[in-house]
Design a protein around this nucleic acid. Structure first.
Lengths: 144, 144
DNA sequence: TATTGTTATACTCTATAACTATA
DNA sequence: TATAGTTATAGAGTATAACAATA
């Protein structure tokens, strides 16, 4: 059987769990859940509608409402009426939210450095290329 | 600045989220959460104490109790008294749980194949090697 | 005394269903 | 009629604190 593919799947799953543990820690350091961390990361350079966020994250709109409620209450983001659709609501980071996004990004890079730091520059380039190749542009949810 | 390392971190995070989405879907197909899926996967070929499971997953013992309660109620696993420590409780999969573990493993492989399938055999080998290299044997929780 | 595990409590995450307002 | 978003409800995941039993 495909012994080679087997080992790859295991390595990919293992590396993903390890990466997620780092992200989780980074989020917890800022009193955020992993999902909140994602929302902040996505909104760092975008303004999106509630339904777009939900679709990209694979969550129900009602779940999104709750997440936004709690983040808004903490001053991380704000709701704005869409300028083109009377039914829609846009979400953007507040200045405080943008500052938080910067801190988180730095924190994630630092947290991941023990993993990536052992690679040579050539290996980093090769790994990045291979990871981008398996990201399958079709099939995953896209941002508008 | 380290422009190269930056792209790698992003690719790693992105690939991890995509992988997690696949695992989540596989778990949902069997009415499991991601954490339950991990528990089943870990116990597939091991018998562990509650506290070892909690430590490896980075969860509190009380959280572990709840997870085990629900899985036990569904007939996936069972609690057994430790043979060496009167305070400890071992956890193992039931035959039904082991069958479930097999189905999940196949399901995960199938779910991930669109990602890994685009690589040549040589690329798979290279990617697996690089992923294993960043798994940093020190720093992550270990199984006993 | 320290460790193992459970229980009680509280909060977040998540989905489903029912609803309002707009397209 | 269909879509965008909210609210109500319920269950799972999670942590903290208090506890019983064993080491």
């Amino acid at each position: 059987m495909d012994r080679e593919g087997y080992g790859l799947v295991d390595a990919l799953v293992q590396a993903s769990f390890t990466t997620m543990a780092v992200l989780n820690k980074a989020a917890a350091d800022h009193d955020l859940s992993l999902t909140q961390l994602r929302v902040v990361g996505i909104l760092a350079d975008r303004r999106l509608r509630v339904s777009d966020l939900a679709a990209y994250l694979g969550l129900e709109k009602s779940t999104m409402s709750g997440l936004i409620d709690r983040a808004e209450k903490r001053g991380i983001l704000t709701r704005l009426p869409s300028e083109t659709d009377g039914r829609a609501v846009d979400v953007t980071l507040t200045p405080a939210g943008r500052a938080l996004a910067d801190r988180i990004h730095a924190r994630v890079r630092a947290g991941l450095s023990p993993m990536t730091g052992g690679l040579t520059a050539a290996e980093k380039t090769r790994l990045r290329g291979l990871l981008e190749k398996i990201l399958m542009p079709n099939g995953s949810p896209r941002l508008p």
